[in-house]
């Protein structure tokens, strides 16, 4: 759809009342949700599925997702793989370097709970949410690219419900 028309659609939908504020909200959310640049963050085997999702067959670019190699240019961190005790402080640093608003997707059972390394592991952190807040969890070992895209669509839904005044 034509870009201007798309914006116009949102503006027209607004109910009466606080018109300017709500319009800004949906305009910003529309922009945020459709330009989620993500940080290259493959930690283990899930990264292969993330790469597959980014490559031409599943083509994340069509959703406005492009990978960037610097946290300062990104809005989304897809944690794809096991978080180890050595990696955890670095994840935290990278997350702090990302500009607000920032979002995190925990991809795969390793990033959610430690997965296959839940028991008897001295090195694996039991879920990336011990280190940084997570918006969307995608289960699977590894999740297929379709599942990753489903998670991204869920995140876009979540972003579209946000408001500038409260998150």
């Amino acid at each position: 759809m034509d870009l201007a028309q798309d914006v116009f659609r949102y503006v027209e939908k607004m109910p009466g009342g606080n018109l300017i504020l709500t319009t800004t909200d949906s305009l910003f959310n529309w922009a945020k949700a459709n330009s989620l640049w993500y940080l290259l963050f493959g930690l283990k085997c899930c990264a292969i599925e993330m790469m597959a999702a980014g490559a031409s067959r599943y083509d994340l670019d069509r959703l406005g997702l492009m990978f960037r190699a610097s946290p300062r240019q990104t809005d989304l961190m897809i944690v794809a793989g096991t978080v180890t005790a050595k990696m955890a402080p670095r994840i935290r640093t990278l997350w702090e370097q990302m500009a607000e608003p920032r979002y995190v997707i925990a991809m795969g059972s390793c990033a959610i709970t430690g997965g296959a390394f839940f028991y008897d592991s001295y090195a694996a952190i039991k879920g990336v949410d011990e280190v940084i807040p997570v918006d969307v969890y995608i289960p699977g070992c590894p999740p297929r690219p379709e599942a990753l895209i489903e998670g991204i669509l869920k995140l876009q839904e979540k972003i579209k419900k946000e408001s500038l005044t409260k998150r």
Binding site: F118, Y119, D120, S121, Y122, A123, K126
Partner: peptide, 19 residues
Amino acid sequence: SPLRKDYTKPGVIKRPETI
């Protein structure tokens, strides 16, 4: 030294016999 058999660390969850 974590690969020694008697190594323990707080936070390491032992695998139950049933799993």
